[in-house]
Amino acid sequence: MGTPAITIENLTKEFTNPSIFNRGKVTAVDSLSLTVEAGHVYGLLGPNGSGKSTTMKIVLGLVVPTSGRTCIFGRDSRDVESREAVGFLPENPYFYKFLTGSETLDFYGKLCGLGGKMLRDRSRELLALVGLESAADRRVGGYSKGMLQRIGLAQALVQDPRLLVLDEPTAGVDPAGSHDIRDLILRLKQRGITVLLCSHLLSQVQEICDRIGIMNHGKLVREGPLDDLISIENQTELTLENVSPALLAELRERAEAGGARVLGAHKPQQNLERYFLDVTAGKK
C-alpha cells in the first residue's frame, strides 16, 4: 500500500471564544485520527458544528492545529508545497465576479505555476469537463449557483491534483446538476484521484463513497467501509419481476419451512431523484 492521501494524527483544535466577557475555549476537533487511502472516495459526515469543516481546513493548512498533525501524501499540511497535490472546492464557492470563467481558471492555474499554452489547453479541457464552454467568456458574477459550483470544481482540478477536497459540492444545485457532479466524482475516482467529501446529502454519499467517517462533537464516532457500516448482516433482499400471487405464496411457504422469516413483500419504488431526472431529461 502506498502513502495515504490524508493522514490525520491525534488532531485537536481549540478556538478561543471571541467574546471578551466569556473567554472560554471551544474544542472543535478532539483527538481525531484518521487515514484516507489513495484512490478512495471518503465521505466525512456529521451534523453542523461537528468539526468536519475545521478538520478540512486544517488538512488544507488554512487553520493551525492546537496539537497533532495532518499530512497530505506524507507532507505536513503546514508546508505550502503539500497543497500542490490538492484541489479544494469550498462550500458555496464565490469567485472574483469581474473575471470570466476562463480568466478564473487562468488565475488559479497561474497560482499553481502553470502558464502558456499548457494552461490554455488545460483550461479549455476543464471547461468542457464541467460543461461551461458556452459560459467561458461570461463574467462569473452572472453565474448561477450550479455554474459557480462547476467552475469551482474546474478550479480545484486545474493543476491535476491527486487529492480533491469537496465541501458540500452539491449544496444549492438542482438535481440534474447534482447528478452531473456525482458522475464527475465517479469518473475522477476511476482516474485514481482521491476524494474527501463532506456532505449532508446522505443518499449521495451512499452512492459514491467507499468509506465514511461520522463525526460528532469533534470526535470520530464511526469509521469504516460504507458497505460494512450499513448492511444488515442477517437479512437478504430479493427483487423479482413478473411474479404471480401464487408463486409469491409458495416462496413464502418454502422460506418459512426452511427456518427463515419473511419480513415483508412490497413493490420496490423508484428513487425520486431518478424519477425526476427521467421526467426532466428531454427538457434541456
Binding site: K57, L60, G61, L62, V80, E81, R83, E84, V86, G87, F88, L89, P90, E91, N92, P93, Y94, F95, Y96, Y108, L111, C112, G113, G152, Q155, A156, Q159, V165
Partner: peptide, 14 residues
Amino acid sequence: EDRTLYTILAKPVS
C-alpha cells in the same frame, strides 16, 4: 467573505 481566500490559499501559495 467570498471565501476566494480559501481557494487561493488552498493552492500552493504562501
